[in-house]
Each structure stands twice: as C-alpha cells, then as structure tokens.
Design a protein around this nucleic acid. Structure first.
Length: 867
RNA sequence: GCCCGGAUGGUGGAAUUGGUAGACACGCAGGUCUCAGAAGCCUGUGCCUAAAAGCAUGACGGUUCGAGUCCGUCUCCGGGCACCA
C-alpha cells in the first residue's frame, strides 16, 4: 500500500492517510464463522454526549485496540466493535430546551464521536456499529423485555417516588435538597406512581454464585456481593398479646392479624429480645396502635414519610421512635415485649419488623438507651469482657436449655426448635431489591405493552399462546387493567413524534399526551393498530387498548449490546445461533469501575435470563473484566469543566498526533492506576517516535543508508531485540503496556548505537510497534519497501537461545550488604566464585582478618558472607 | 462505622514476586553542533559528602543471612457501602 512522501514525521498527513486506507479496505472486519480461533475484545460503548470525547475514553479504547491488533498479529479472528449508548436524559433535556427532536441532537453527537474515535485510529469493525436508539436495534431490546415479561420477571407496582407539584414532575433523589426541589426550591412529596419492575431478586442466588467463576477484579466482585447482600437467618413468629384489653379483632381490622413475623440473623439471641420494632410503613401499624397512641404514631409516620432517604440513614442522628401501646409474646420464654415503631427499621428488608436484642446489637442498644428499655446479656464474651453491646464470639447464658452452646450451634438448634413448633424457619434474605425499570420520559425504548380490560385480555388469551402464566394487572380508579404484550411481529414499537418533550402534568411521560398513538384499536394477533378515534376495523381480533406510556431506563440498551455485535444486521433474532456459538462472548471487557454494580449487574441478570431461554450458551456474559484507572488533571484533581483542567483529545492529536497520544496514555502508568495527566511528559514518547522515524529514513525521506540488506546486529543488540520481542508480547497479553513501551524504547536506544541495522530487524521492530503506534508503523513499513499492511503481518518470534548471555553478574554481599559484583560465566562453581569474591578489591577490606562464619550462595544471583 | 485499594528521587513510574532499589521517561545541569536558535547527539543527575563512608521505598516495631516485597501497630490519600436486623 502506498505511503505518503513526507520527508519528516508529519503525523498530521500520515495519520489521516492510513486511516483512509483502513477505512477504504475495511481492514479490520471480523469474519463470522472463520476457521481461525476467535478473540472478542470489547469496550464499554460511550454515551455520545454533546461535550465530545473525554480523555478517559481513549485510555481504555487504546488498551483494547492494542490488544486487538496484537491478537490479529497472533493469528486470531478478532472482533473489536464500537457503538453508541444513545438513549438518555441529556438529549431529552436538550430537546425540552430547544424543541428539536432528541434523535437529531443524538445523531449530531454520534457524528462528532465517530469522527473523534476514527481520528484515534482504532481498529474497530465499522460494519458492526450499533446505536441503541435505532429501531432495528431496540426492536430486540423490546423483544428481550417481552421474554422477561412472559417468564413472569416483569410486573407493575406502585412505588414511592419524589413528586414536585410546582414543577409538575418526578424528581430523582439527587434532585432533592432539604426536602425541596433543587431547582426553584419548591416542596416535594412522596407519591406512589405506577412503575414497571424487573424481578432481579429471583436471580439473586445465581448472580452471587456466578461471581465465583469469572475473572474480574476482586473489588468489583465484592461490590456486587455487597449489593446482593445475602444473609442467612430465620423468620420467627411473635404472637400479639391480646390480654391487655386490646385485641386486633375488636378493632375492625382483619382478625387474622394476630402474628408479627420478624427476620433475624441471630435467632440464638432470642432470649435477649426485650422489645420489638416495626417500620413506620409496616401495614400492621394501624392495627397495632392503641387508640391513645394514635396521635403520636400518626405524627411520627408523617414525619418519617417526609424524611429523605439521606436524612433517614444519617447515623449521626439519634434514634427516634414511638410506642404503639401493643405487646407481643417472645416465643422462647413467653416474655411480654413492647412493640415500638421506629424508622431505623426499613420496610423494604426482611419483614419490616425486628426483634430487638439490645445486648448484642449496636442499633438496638442505642435505641434501648434512648428509651430506657432493659438490656440483658445472653452471650458470654469469649474474652470474658463484660461490655455491651457485644457482637463477638461466645457462648449462650441466660437462655434456659441452650446455655453453654456456642452461638452458631445455638442458632441451628433454636431455629430447628421453632420450626418444629411451626413458628419459625430458617430463611435467606437479600438486600438487593427488584429493579425499578420505568422512567416517565420520552427518550427511551417504549414498552411493547398495551393495557386492556379483563374481557379483552380473555379474548387475547384465547388467540395467543405467548402470554405469561399469571396476568400482570394494575388497578386504577377501581378498574383492573391487564397488561397485554404486543406480538413479536409488531416490534419495533417506535416513538411517536410529540408536540412537547416535557412530562405531562400528572407525572406521566410526554407520550401520555399523544392521543392518536396512545388510544388505539389493536389487532391482538398481528399487533396492527389504528387510532381509537377511527372507526373500529372489521374483524374479531380488534380490541380497544391504551399503550404503556413509560419508557425503559438507559440501562436497557447496554444490557445486551455485546451480543448484537456478533451479528448486528440480523433481522430475525438478537443474533443468529451460529454467530452466538462462534463468538460466545467477550474474552475481555474493559471499562470504568463506575459501572461495577449497575450496568455490570443488570447485564449479568439479562444474560442469565437469556441463558435460561437457551439463547446464549454460557451463564455469564463477561469472562474477564478490567477497569482502567481514571486520569486526573495536571493539578492531580479529577478533571472537570469548572476546574478548567480538562484535556481534549483533539488538541493533543493536533499537537503531537494520535500515535503519540496513544503511546503516552499507555506509558503514563499501569492501566488500572489512577494517574495524573502531564502534557510535558508526552514529549518523551513523541521523541521516541521521531527517533524511530530517523532510524528508518534520512533527512530527504529516503531509506536510511544505515539500513542494510544483510549483515547482523552486534550480539548485545541482538539480545535486546529478542528480549523485546519476548517482553512486549508478554506484557501486552498481561495489559502491562507501560513496561512494554519502556522495553521498545530500550530497543530503540540500542539500535541507534549500532553502526548498521539489518532491514529484517527494523521490520521486526515495526511489527512490535504496530499495535501501539499503528500509523507510524504502516508508513515506515511501506517506506521500507513492504507491500501490504503491517497490521496483517505476523508477530515476530524470539529465539530463546539469544536471550542467554555468556556472562552473568554475581552480587557480593558481606553481612547482607552489597559490597561489589563480579562478572562470571554462568556455569561457575561456588568454590571458584568464593575465591573470586574474597579477592575482590572492594570486598577484601570487609573480610580482612575476620573469620567467615557462614556463606550463603544463591545460584546465578549472589554470594553473601557472614563475618 | 464497615469493606477494598494505595503511599518508592524534583515529577510519572520500574523492580524477575524475599536477592544489585530507582529501569524507561519527564525535568534540570554541563558539553557538542550552529551566525544564532530549534531539533539532534554526548555526559551527569536519590539524599548527605571534597572523597571514603553513611542514609534512603509514609511512620514505628518484628521475622530473615538478606525486606519496597512477609507479619504487627499507626498515619495520610483514594474508592465503595452505609440503621439490611
């Protein structure tokens, strides 16, 4: 392929030149069904923001690109794709402000991102580019949602969200400051709104278990473990004490409510339970509150409801609570214990009720101190200490029948005893909650769901086989509506054009205003629709329906994009079975640690559902994960617009070229480390590239006369060459790019000192350099007379024999201190070495006149005399 | 509070996993080339020293012939979780 004819290293000509050739020849196309071994290396695809590429993007993308190019040179069929995670709030806010369709803004941003990414010379297969907002893509996002729906993993629930009546919108937790809206300072309230929820909790155990089998950073695995939050314990039933003149069945409330069920991880401490606490939102609060406590309880509940999550979990705050007036019976000893209502117990975890054991739980202890409740001890400390609360190991006391047992033994025995009586059982609880999957926004995937009457749903059941076993329903104004999925044939369900991108007044998405899209006649079998304002079409399949107005959150599109890359044009499936079988999944996934939980957990969840459906063959999507560290500004602080320390890749490319930027990003330090940017240091790698240029070409741009067609390097330089082939290969595989680059610099320095360099050696150097600085490597490759691309040339092999030198350096120590060294042949014996060491001019004075008590000899490394 | 990760020259970082601490760069100093500059090239550069010696991997202890690396205690910085019973 033809090179430029620059005399000097004119990267601004060379880089676009080769990018053009790569693009024209579609040089990095991955082949489906190749007989070569496959290697799939994936980046976290970007959200195309209006701000353009951030320097953190090219950091991770360069790392994967080096690996992709290296693996190609190693003979792999490499899949290295890119796309756009393009649904999201910023595009919608822009649309609200300007009135233009978010798609237009999104496409502009994508165009800019594509230009920037192409200018970095990444070897992506551009034929496989995906865009989550493309109906051809989100058709399959909707399809996966329908699979979840049909398996009973999607349901509708009223969930409390923050609502601001003044702004007429739902606000996120982060948008509330001191109980008021961040914008405008208007009061907000908790309001229950209808939300779609995905049953991720059904996969809690599998999501936890799967972590054991994947090669991920430990910190990320631990974060997911903590998020899933598995605890083993017991559910225990406490009877309500009705003997005090108050009985639930006389209060006009369900007479069955005579039990209070709690969850505990420490059933062994049951004898230490002196009171109980239920969450303010607990459904039994009204039934358990005695009339004279009504006012106080009601006030407390209101106060708790107003508190933000942040305030409520603020540990610095004292414990608060109110007494309900009711008592329960401790099932192990019959003790009558008061039932309190306090917001340190959360409704969303366990049963929303606890037994309080102040002697052995910090929170219960604090509460008991505050309200003067008894604090007995039931575990004797292993170390004999008598401070409370005590959470350590020990044996039971004051627990008739169990005294003397260790607490894990007692936990088992007491749980079994309760189970035998039918008032308790061993159980497992998880902190993870079901995934709130809907947003009241315009710019997201519409749910392929319509709401119909019960009668119409029955009609659909008669004609369709793809409905869930249990219908998903929702009661509104006393009418129960049924969620009916669109048939697959009706996908994609696209977004209608709207007049305004603002949410409607009642907290619904802007879609709720689009009557002709919203209110329809639906053919239940084909999914065809006409506006309800039109006459009902003829035929028995037509029913009246209202479309779902929520849209999916931004996570939806990124939950499965790695599968689409395998077969992005497929119109019949998320990807064809052959493609799925060949590529399996990414062999390496590189992205920021900020996605340690949400994206990486959601994607694992969807993948496991697809695995259960038989769509994918492996239970985990990402076998190996790596997080690149963030790059700080030159001032050592996180880059931000307000600090003015942001580095724009475009500026660096203009000043030094992409190859220098790529090399510098990798030379900065270990990929995983957080490290500061330093524009001065980029000079170093830039000089290195210029040096390689000069070693290949003279001042006129002709082949440097030092390059010979035959001949050989000096033995020292030849050794460095083979060391470099070995080390750069190994370091690249291990993602240790910084040390790989130092080694290339060492080789560059060594070659510079040679009187002549054989052409074959220079070509090997270019092959090693090519994954790192691909444009320069291509240019010099061509200028040295090679046809074809260096990118398809094989990685050089090293000769292990050339790595050995004829002498080795042995360190001489006296009493463990380094005193000198000797050059010896590798085969030298200990005795000879000892003699040489003793005669060493620097060592002799330390040994003179002192008897050698002991000699330690480490073969090939050092000899240590103890005197 | 709990769970992770980190701390090495003026700077970014290396260090065969217990065996020459400071590779490779940046910066700085001197030299060379040049009318001059830029770019190259050469030399030096942990600290303290005239030198020898000594001192040096956040701090203090320990194990070892030998510790940046292993163990204990602590300090500071970064990340995550946070009343989950």
């Amino acid at each position: 392929m033809s090179a430029t004819n620059c005399k000097e290293y004119e990267f601004l000509k060379i880089e676009p030149h080769w990018q053009g050739i790569w693009e024209k020849t579609r040089a990095f196309r991955a082949e489906n069904g190749s007989s070569k071994p496959k290697y799939y290396v994936l980046d976290m695809f970007p959200y195309p923001s209006g701000a353009g590429l951030h320097i953190g993007h090219p950091e991770g993308y360069t790392a994967t690109d080096i690996l992709a190019r290296y693996k190609r040179a190693r003979g792999f069929n490499v899949l290295h794709p890119i796309g756009w995670d393009a649904f999201g709030l910023p595009a919608e806010q822009h649309a609200v402000k300007t009135g233009t369709h978010p798609a237009a803004n999104t496409q502009n941003n994508i165009t800019n991102f594509r230009r920037q990414i192409k200018s970095l010379g990444f070897s992506y297969d551009w034929d496989r580019e995906v865009d989550t907002t493309d109906p051809k893509y989100f058709r399959w996002t909707q399809w996966i949602f329908l699979q979840l729906f049909k398996r009973g993993l999607a349901y509708v629930d009223e969930r409390p969200v923050w609502w601001c009546p003044e702004l007429r919108t739902v606000l996120a937790n982060e948008e509330i400051v001191d109980g008021k809206s961040e914008v405008g300072g208007f009061p907000v309230e908790r309001r229950n709104l209808r939300q779609w929820v995905l049953r991720i909790t059904a996969y809690a155990e599998q999501l936890l278990d799967g972590l054991k089998h994947i090669d991920w950073p430990d910190s990320t695995k631990r974060m997911q473990e903590a998020w899933i939050g598995r605890s083993e314990g017991a559910e225990v039933v406490f009877k309500i004490d009705c003997g005090s003149g108050f009985a639930p069945d006389q209060s006009g409330i369900n007479p069955d409510l005579q039990d209070l069920k709690i969850f505990t991880t420490r059933p062994d401490t049951l004898f230490g339970c002196t009171y109980m606490v239920i969450a303010p939102e607990h459904p039994l609060v009204p039934a358990l509150t005695k009339p004279e406590f009504n006012a106080a309880v009601e006030a407390y509940r209101k106060k708790a409801a107003r508190k933000s999550d942040l305030e409520r979990t603020d540990l610095a705050k004292d414990k608060s609570g109110v007494f309900s007036g009711s008592y329960a019976i401790n099932p192990v000893n019959g003790a009558r214990v008061p039932i309190w209502i306090a917001d340190y117990v959360l409704m969303g975890y366990g049963t929303g009720a606890i037994m309080a054991v102040p002697g052995h739980d910090e929170r219960d202890y604090e509460f008991a101190k505050q309200f003067d409740l008894p604090i007995p001890r039931v575990i004797a400390a292993a170390d004999g200490s008598d401070t409370l609360p005590y959470m350590g190991d020990g044996t039971l006391i004051n627990s008739p029948g169990y005294d003397g047992l260790t607490w894990p033994e007692a936990k088992k025995k007491i749980t079994a005893a309760l189970a035998a009586k039918g008032i308790g059982k061993g159980t497992i609880n998880y902190k993870i909650r079901d995934w709130l999957f809907s947003r009241q926004r315009y710019w997201g995937e519409p749910f392929p769901i319509v709401w119909v009457s019960e009668a119409n749903y029955r009609l659909a059941v008669a004609k369709r086989r793809d409905l869930p076993a249990q219908p998903v329903t929702f009661a509104e104004n006393g009418v129960t509506l049924f969620a009916l999925p669109l048939p697959d044939a009706a996908l994609p369900l696209t977004l209608p054009d709207v007049q305004s991108y603002l949410p409607s007044g009642n907290g619904e998405s802007p879609l709720a205003n689009e009557t002709s899209w919203l209110e329809i006649w639906l053919d239940v079998v084909s999914g065809a629709a006409v506006p309800a304002s039109a006459p009902k079409p003829a035929g028995e399949n037509w029913i009246r329906a209202r479309r779902e107005t929520n849209t999916m959150p931004q996570w939806a599109g990124s939950c499965w994009y790695y599968l689409r890359f395998m077969d992005p044009q497929n119109a019949d499936a998320i990807a064809g079975p052959a493609a799925l079988k060949y590529w399996v999944g990414p062999d390496l996934y590189v992205g920021g640690a900020e996605h340690s939980v949400l994206h990486l957990l959601y994607a694992r969840f969807w993948h496991k559902v697809l695995f259960d459906l038989g769509v994918v063959a492996e239970p985990e999507p990402f076998q190996k994960l790596f997080h690149q560290g963030i790059i700080l500004g030159e001032d050592g602080v996180k880059m931000s617009k307000s600090r003015g320390n942001v580095v724009n890749p475009d500026d660096i490319i203009a000043a030094y070229g992409t190859d220098s930027l790529r090399l510098y990003l990798m030379f900065l330090g270990p990929l995983e480390a957080m490290k500061p940017w330093n524009t001065k240091n980029i000079e170093g790698v830039h000089r290195f590239l210029k040096k390689i240029w000069r070693e290949c070409l003279d001042a006129e741009g002709a082949v440097n006369p030092r390059i010979s067609d035959g001949g050989a390097l000096s033995p020292e330089a030849e050794k460095v060459l083979h060391e470099t082939i070995k080390k750069v290969g190994e370091d690249t595989e291990a993602l240790k790019f910084n040390t790989a680059i130092s080694q290339m610099m060492i080789l560059g320095n060594a070659l510079q000192k040679e009187p002549a360099v054989p052409r074959a050696v220079m070509l090997d150097f270019l092959r090693i350099l090519a994954p790192y600085a691909p444009h320069l490597a291509e240019e010099l490759w061509a200028r040295l007379g090679q046809t074809g691309s260096v990118a398809v040339s094989a990685w050089p092999t090293y000769d292990a024999a050339k790595l050995l030198s004829n002498t080795i350096t042995i360190v001489i120590q006296v009493n463990g201190k380094h005193r000198g060294d000797v050059e010896v042949e590798p085969g030298v014996t200990e005795d000879v070495l000892k003699c040489m060491a003793e005669q060493h001019p620097k060592v002799g004075s330390y040994l003179a006149g002192k008897p050698i008590k002991r000699t330690i000899y480490v073969k090939g490394r050092l000899i240590n005399f103890l005197v």
